[in-house]
């Protein structure tokens, strides 16, 4: 069970420093928090012409929440917001076990590695925190840096 969750890929993403920074030209800053366990991330987006030009994050949390955030940022950089919303729906459906076919999940790139979290109810919210934070950031409408 553990080796399917704590893969090397997830371990690497959870410790990867590149996306842990402050965006100089952020248009959206959104804080996401799991009060019951303390995962606490701040997601920054630079959006121009309906596209995510750049993204970054800060904060603390478990390996799953941190890896999930890092993989999400890698995936979203350069993507249109409409595509980001579609990917968020796929990711959240994957974590809840509603989408399981690998062809659809291929769109998630590395983030598809979190598929097995769907078998661990206690950790679902760790994996989805970044994506729910993204949804809050891009559905708030107006830019707030």
């Amino acid at each position: 069970m553990l080796e399917n969750i704590y893969t090397e890929l997830i371990a690497e993403h959870s410790r990867s420093p590149e996306n842990r920074r402050t965006l100089p030209h952020a248009t959206h800053t959104e804080r996401g928090h799991n009060p019951s366990c303390g995962d606490d991330i701040t997601l920054q987006l630079e959006i121009a012409d309906g596209k995510i030009v750049d993204a970054s994050f800060g904060g603390t949390g478990c390996a799953i929440s941190q890896a999930s955030t890092d993989m999400m940022i890698e995936l979203l950089r350069g993507k249109p917001i409409t595509e980001a919303k579609r990917l968020a729906e796929i990711f959240i459906a994957m974590i809840h076990g509603d989408i399981t076919d690998d062809d659809t999940l291929a769109a998630l790139d590395d983030a598809a590695a979190l598929k097995n979290i769907s078998t661990m109810p206690a950790r679902v919210k760790c994996a989805t925190l970044a994506w729910h934070t993204l949804e809050a950031a891009i559905t708030d409408g107006d830019a707030h840096a």
Partner: peptide, 19 residues
């Protein structure tokens, strides 16, 4: 992170709290 510790311990049958 403590949550990862608790998950790894859980797999071994050891119930602790993290948070």
């Amino acid at each position: 992170h403590p949550h990862d510790v608790a998950t790894i311990l859980d797999a071994a049958g050891v119930a602790i709290r993290a948070g």
